[in-house]
Amino acid sequence: MVPRITFHFIWLVLATCVHAGSLSLQNPRFTITSSTAAQLRTDTLSLAEKPEPLKLGPSDTLKFTFQITENGEGKGVQPHQTFLRFHDSVSGEEGIQPVRVTPGGKAKFELNMARPPPSLPPTADRPLEVSLILGSFVHEPTIFDLFDLYVPPSHAPAPHPDEAKFHVLPLIHHTFRPEQKLPPKFVSVVFAALVLSPWLVLLGLWSKIGVRVPHLFSPRIIPFTALLGAFEALLCWYWIDLKLGEVLLYGGILAVPTIFAGKTALAATGEWRTGKN
């Protein structure tokens, strides 16, 4: 890619340095004929301003002749590239039609609407801007805006066959689940109170039944209850801070004395129970 650009660049520099002059158009002339060979309109173009837009019927023919000269002098030159460009400025569709130029600089272009060339862009009821593009190795490139051309409207452009495959896809919009909203504070507080209220029921019922724990503080029971409390504390701590592995480790360590304490404590209660009964 890089060498090609420099290549162009060299030519550009060369062209400006050589100053061989610019290309100009002599006797640009168009003629519109109908299918019955009747001449509808013919005129010489002035390059200074566009003529009235040209109108072509579905079977009309446009003829366009001109001569290319160097620096406006009589001697015709043959540029290396000559194109007519049909451009629809609204839809952006364009068609490029090469024009054959004789070594004497004379050129003739014919557009028969009965058999339009494939490159003619699809049209609506807007005119196409027609311009002439000249390219040359030794002259400055030139563009002449010639005229506006109405051609009969056609269907909208068909989609390019590759368009479906190679197309910029629309941006993906990530949709997230809406943030869960918390209930109002009042409701939360009320329900927190409600959830705690069964404790009153429990305490009320227990006091009515009359709970007696005569042995709770005996030395054989207290280690067991303490260790059970420690277990609950450990689990609570797990919720707040600890990681799984640590909990399992501490739990395992705690389990050993708990089992022994539980054995003695329950053996003791067993004795009391059988003794009492």
Partner: peptide, 9 residues
């Protein structure tokens, strides 16, 4: 042949 992009009504 190039495909005609223009389809006359």
């Amino acid at each position: 042949k190039p495909i005609a992009r223009r389809k006359a009504i």
